[in-house]
Design a protein around this nucleic acid. Structure first.
Lengths: 240, 240
DNA sequence: CGGCGGATTGAGTGCTCTCAACAGGAGTGG
DNA sequence: CCACTCCTGTTGAGAGCACTCAATCCGCCG
């Protein structure tokens, strides 16, 4: 972690992640106060930073409390691929529990609050608490399933289908966290992020998004998105 | 499992996976005879079968002893995406240990010998034997890393780079298992498999492979591949 | 010999990219 | 308050990589 971009806040003990905007259905939620004595540190970072650079060594494991981030890979010629978006409540990567270096970087899209655990402490907890273990394995499986779905999208789906799927997936994930009101939710992604997530260029993303707008599938404005016709959007997501 | 395609062989106890063509650096290897009382069943299947269909429920976890298979996803219009190739020694999927239904099918490319473990027995063993646990987590991490690499390829690399990477990755994986002689190894993939693995059409794969041949990077014949110039192939794999 | 799976090749198409210009909004400094 | 820059998104024109369609070929096998 780059100290310049990190604003350390307070240190707490025994009450894990009480600052999480989201409490339910996430890893943090499994670390219930009554059976955890984990040391944790809450910190925050500004948007548009790279708090973790691919290949760096870390002692800690991170959970996003609030804000959006992304796991990214940058190629030598500057092109970027986003592997996944990190939403409030997300463990940054299950792999981080089992190895000290990752092949992706982490970039913040918005200002972020996050919570830091010691890897070794958490590993021990994992073996002692079957429920924590259970929860982590669920995350592992979910991460792999999401990666597999993205592979199918990138390998075999059209630009419109990929973008439609991304939007639907984000809505589902946010919905599970109670962050969707009606069919609308915060949408801090720039078209550059969408392009890098689904393997397209910003120019083409712009065209597709405007197609969606004109077809009255979605409405994006003021960093908010509203799904106007989920049914139609799903049709696009499944179409060739 | 479709009983018609499965030819059950013998049942053994206490000597895990003694029929594996590959012993080193795999999950099977971690299940050493001296501390395992796992029930296992060895079976075989013919090439070109689908021993597991996406969504089916299973009680067992499978390890490939010999032969090649693939995890595949089929879209409604018939297009297919290969998520990964399964090589001798591979656990079919780490996820299979933690959930009963997978979102991919398993298709055999060659005749296969494999070894079947009970999920529940293996799960118990996992908690009792830290080394088994360790090994499984390594596999989880490796699976995720491979998926992430494929995402980057599909999202941001050219056809030639994707194919070159696939070939290099297969060589590395087989090499770790001692299945590469010089720079040559068994290569049962049809061009259709390559196409479905890297998100292209067979026609285009044919053109790229022939470019590689003419550039004297590789030689494919008789279901064998020989890497003539690994250095050049790596250049192609890294090029735009 | 005919049939089948697989690979090759050509011609034409089209989806997505590249290049480039421009517009609007937010923030900054004078 | 205005000029300026940066960031983001939009739009047009043209190009190219990979696709589709289709014909052909080859090796293998019953």
């Amino acid at each position: 972690m780059n100290a310049l971009t990190v604003k350390p806040t307070e240190r707490t003990n025994g009450s894990p992640c009480d600052k999480c905007r989201v409490r339910a259905s996430n890893f943090c939620g499994a670390l219930k106060p009554e059976r955890t004595s984990l040391t944790q540190v809450h910190q925050s970072i500004l948007a548009r930073r790279t708090p973790y650079q691919a290949g760096e060594e870390t002692e800690d494991v991170h959970v996003i409390c609030d804000g959006w981030a992304a796991c990214t890979v940058r190629l030598s010629d500057g092109r970027r691929q986003i592997l996944s978006f990190l939403l409030p409540g997300d463990l940054v990567s299950a792999s981080a529990l089992f190895k000290t270096r990752q092949l992706f970087s982490v970039q913040t899209l918005t200002d972020i609050r996050y919570c830091k655990f010691s890897r070794s402490e958490l590993q021990k907890k994992l073996m002692e608490e079957p429920q924590v273990f259970e929860e982590l394995m669920k995350i592992c499986v979910a991460e792999k399933d999401q990666a597999d779905q993205l592979i199918v999208s990138l390998g075999r789906r059209s630009a419109a289908a990929r973008i439609a799927r991304l939007i639907i997936l984000l809505m589902e994930r946010l919905s599970a966290r109670g962050l969707v009101r009606g069919q609308a939710f915060d949408f801090p992604l720039r078209q550059q992020h969408i392009a890098d997530a689904v393997g397209l260029t910003t120019v083409h993303v712009s065209r597709v998004i405007n197609m969606f707008r004109k077809a009255e599938l979605i409405d994006i404005a003021q960093r908010q998105i509203k799904i106007i016709s989920l049914r139609e959007l799903q049709r696009v997501a499944d179409a060739r």
